[in-house]
């Protein structure tokens, strides 16, 4: 796997969307792969929470016939935490402060998720 390309995607997203404070990528079972997070965040715990959160959201979507899960977003008074599935094998966490435009985040994240999925599966993604 191209470690530099993964770092590039994670940092690139943070530079592209104002308000992103931290990002992390983990395997679908919650094992941390990479974290670009502040010291105040426990990235291992965050990865495990994201895996559990996505699992719960996926089952909720199934049980309520809401179709394929897109993402989960937890909104707090000081910002939000978004969890995205990366294909069938991994997940990505994006934390943002109160200024983060969540719609803009979702738009910017979709192409990045495809590229991160390709990087993780050792495929050569175009433009990376």
């Amino acid at each position: 796997m191209d470690h530099e390309a993964l770092t590039h995607e994670m940092r690139g997203l943070r530079e592209q969307v104002t308000g992103i404070t931290d990002t992390a990528v983990a395997a679908a079972d919650g094992l941390l792969i990479a974290a670009d997070t502040a010291d105040s965040i426990d990235p291992e715990g965050l990865a495990a929470l994201a895996a559990a959160g996505l699992g719960l959201a996926r089952r909720t979507a199934q049980a309520t016939a809401r179709g394929a899960l897109r993402q989960t977003v937890t909104y707090g008074s000081h910002g939000c935490a978004a969890f995205y599935a990366v294909g069938d094998t991994a997940l990505m966490v994006v934390l943002g402060d109160e200024g983060l435009d969540v719609d803009r985040l979702h738009r910017a994240t979709q192409p990045a998720l495809d590229r991160i999925g390709s990087i993780l599966m050792n495929k050569t993604a175009e433009g990376v």
Binding site: L6, R11, A27, A28, A35, A85, D88, T89
Partner: peptide, 18 residues
């Protein structure tokens, strides 16, 4: 300039969720 993000692959590789 920030140091590269440390990347750690799970020992058994990345498995499919299902």
């Amino acid at each position: 300039p920030p140091a590269p993000v440390p990347v750690r692959m799970p020992p058994e590789g990345i498995r499919h969720r299902t």
